[in-house]
Design a protein around this nucleic acid. Sequence first.
DNA 1: AGCACGCCGACT
DNA 2: GTCGGCGTGCTC
Length: 878
Amino acid sequence: MYAKVIVDVPAKQTNRAFDYSVPEALRDWVAVGSRVSVPFGPRKLQGFVVELDDRSVMDPAKVKPIAEILDLSPPLTPDLVQLAHWISQTYLCHEITALQAMIPGALKAKYERHVRVKDDSMGQERPMSGLSGNAVGQHSFLLPAQQEIIRYVAAKGSVEIEALLQRFNSEGKLIKELMAEGYLQEVQMVKDRMTAKKALTVFPPDDPEQLRAWAEQLPSRSAKQKEVLELLAERPVPVKLTDLLNELSISAGTVKSLVEKGWLELREVEVLRDPYSHRSFQRTVPLSLMPEQEQVFQRISRPVMDREHRVFLLHGVTGSGKTEVYLQSIQTCLDQGREAIVLVPEISLTPQMVERFKGRFGDQVAVMHSRLSHGERYDEWRKIMQKQVRVVIGARSAIFAPFTQIGLIIIDEEHESSYKQEESPKYHARDVAIARASQHDAVVVLGSATPSLESMYGTLPEYKAEAAAREDSSQARFRSEQLDLFGASTEAGHPAADNNSQARLTGRRVPFELLTMHNRVEGRPLPRVHIIDMREELRQGNRSMFSRDLYKAIEDRLHKKEQTVLLLNRRGYSTFVMCRTCGYVAECPHCDISLTYHQSSRAIRCHYCGYAERELTVCPSCSSEHIRHFGTGTQRVEEELTKLFPGIRVIRMDVDTTTEKGSHEKWLTLFRNRQADLLLGTQMVAKGLDFPHVTLVGAIAADTVLNLPDFRAAERTFQLLTQVAGRAGRHELPGEVYVQTYAPEHYSIISASRHDYQSFMEKEMTLRKFHEYPPFHRLILITLSHEQVPLLMRTAELLASRIKELAKELQPMPVEVLGPVASPISRIKDRYRFQCMIKYRGEASISRLVHQAVAGFEELERQQKLTISVDVDPQVLM
DNA sequence: AGCACGCCGACT
DNA sequence: GTCGGCGTGCTC
């Protein structure tokens, strides 16, 4: 038997499967998805089995055996292995990178290089194995220091090379000699970073009657020991030592003496850490649904029951009760004996959200988010592996939960940009979810109050027509796209092993079905939104950051003891620092960006690289003292608030106040308990929060996002305002929203103020189409960065022309290569940045072409420390 | 990624 | 004449 293995080296030349033989002893263990240790050149590497085969497809003389299997059961399912291949093709990354992203960090291989004394079975000349003083004595040609090293290593069995060099740090050369001459031998080990947590566990004997007999034997002064025996006789199951001690309030000594008598056994047993074990969750029952919810629920649950792959876009206004629909749909899925994945943006993975799911499904739920420790995350993942849970709620990467029977995947707040991973593999969880669902014939629900244009596009007749027209050719073409990107392998990918699994990724997309919920639960009205023209305020002589109306509103809430949420999408104190005499602006010496003043630390700092220096009192350029802080950040608003409203209790939430673990939660709890009057923050306060006493929401500068050089600026502004407006008046008290802006006539702001998604979407669609932007056209952004501009420019030009050249062969397909030009932020951390934009219409093979072009530069990247990053814009893939 | 093999400059 | 620079290629 032979296995195809992807090895743990993310490089162009190793981005293919290597063949290994499966030793007899491992035959029952090695499966598609197994993590193995394999010899690779002179060393050992971790790898993933992606295919099993009865005959070798390559030169049998070269094939080596798999050295070791690293897990008891494969950490990846066959469908995940196939999905990894799809991801590597779609998002242009090495296959190992995609595979690696699917398992918890705890299982990432750690390579340890150890040395040990060579046990030379035939080498009588060097009988070092049973190292006696005598044996060392025979080698009088070894220096005393060398003999000492050998003795040290022999005593320890094996020593990590780094540790040995540290211990004998002046003798590095001698160690090398010993290794070269074969006295010491290097051994490679592939190890996990994490081991399962163990707990001492007490094991009673098989026969509980025996315990009673022993209990009788005990003298009366051993009452505690007797208690233990009686308890175990009553309940003859293994019990954690700590639990036992707590339960009977006894000390470990009591148990120890029983163990010493040989009556009980104490062993270490793996346990799972449960980050939520200390919390009890109030069980909830399904609520009765509103007619609209009921209708949507029916639409979703029917295909779940019929095991049909469908994608629904659920557009539900804030407060329309989407979560209850999710919960009941999941129940339907579980009733089918299948599993469900729920993705939520990291930021809204708050205890409230977890509570709702735990409350409904109890310990059937695993939770995955970045605030968990390495070990906790590993344990949650193992719960899935061991089939202890059937629902996963988590951020982006939870889409890779190793379930085998997925029936439903829900993506809440589907428009959130955090579903796109910034590092390689730069996947978008929405697209991966649809791909994974198609493997399982599962249903996808994309939920949002402000669906992304991409997802909306999927519901349009235009998309359906395009998809239908493409159907035949795309099927055929996709199959050919499964070929190895680099042309290195002649075999067609690895069609993921077992052909009887339903897994088959065609890459073809079904049209999305739009579901709408217009009404809020219990018919609460949406809050009234006032747009405030800040230019008018200025004309009226108000130069403060608060309009008169917003000021009055805040004052009013303070009187009424109601709460306020203020949004400002900018942290720090001011945006930039300028000398009014000469116009000097403080800039980061490492990045092409101005420095932001931070009041608390009296420093100016760079939000890109963290560079900081002391605040300016004198202009470094002209020595003038007329330094002024321009623009407004959260810190400044906080300062202003305490000045204007003496005694006001403000909570400020931004990256600066929430880096500490658990601080996010802490602030929100404080606010919920009404220990503050006003919550001020960046976009993190806009999402998913639900506080009954908030009746006022203010956006201090609604157009900060609008002015960014991004074709999605209007969409993001609309989303942000809609989200933040949804924070007000969610309960009995009616809400009110103030939006301050310098662009009051902008359609994104007007539509948001009218809660009118439809008209915003239509307008934006028209504009996107006209300007040839997504979702009508697709974009791939290639960013190159390097310390030196000339090399950077040369390479960028070369890459652009290479892409053009390759694109020519695809004529008459319209592919535009824009650039190269300097990136909007032309330097970050001392590295200059250039970019190239590829624009084209629905043709998935372009990404492959770009990858091909980029792959040609990998050598250069390695040698010159040049980086090329490729971002496939989130898109509706067909 | 590592590591070996291989072809051209300053040195015992 | 050699030691050593890192350019090119391979790893089942």
